[in-house]
Design a protein around this nucleic acid. Sequence first.
DNA 1: GCGACAG
DNA 2: ATCTTGTCGC
Length: 233
Amino acid sequence: MQLHEWTQDPKQAIILQKQLASRVEKNDRLPDKINFVAGVDIGFEKQGEDTITRAVIVVLNYPTLQVVDYALHREPTRMPYIPGLLSFREVPAAIAAYQKLKQQPDLLMVDGQGIAHPRRLGVASHLGLWLDKPTLGVAKKRLCGKHPELPPQKGSHVPLEDKGEIIGTVLRSKDNINPLYLSIGHRISLQTACNWVNACLTKYKLPEPTRQADRLASRRVPEEQIFKEWQIL
DNA sequence: GCGACAG
DNA sequence: ATCTTGTCGC
């Protein structure tokens, strides 16, 4: 943690993104064997005037995809949502949640873009750099770039391109359901990132790591019920 | 200037 | 992201 990885000022944040983007590793540099894959997602709770940021990280065993650990961290929201500067709003809370984990993951799948970003530094890349961990981005919507239409069948995929550069892959993870936007986060190639997402897909649109994190972060499922399902201690 | 715009 | 009811389709 030599250089500051965060700022609250939008102007400085953009400058910082450009610097950090050059440090993102787009080639594979992950453990020989991946035993634990994590899902990261952030939710928000209204608290009258202000809001609380709720960061969740769930660690699953691979290939069983069973949840073996998780961490939840809540803190006052520090920044408003500004397209292109999402990581400055979410990453600090994610770091705090990560430090609460007992089981460190080998790879993290983050809800949002990796380098499929105007300045090539989406939330997945920012988090990966900060933690110096392999990460990949799994977004439900496009931030930038363009791509051809893709078939409605699960498994179909097309490249996401921006300014003559392939920045990600648009993947249909389920029949007739809007596709996912996958991209390199840090220390992983696009091909390997896509392979891991595919390896973690079951019957739902989202791969298990982020699907489980999303359920807890968004509070769509009572926390008490989730505990019973996961059966972890 | 106009439209787009992760979560 | 969050606020929110019913509704169409596999």
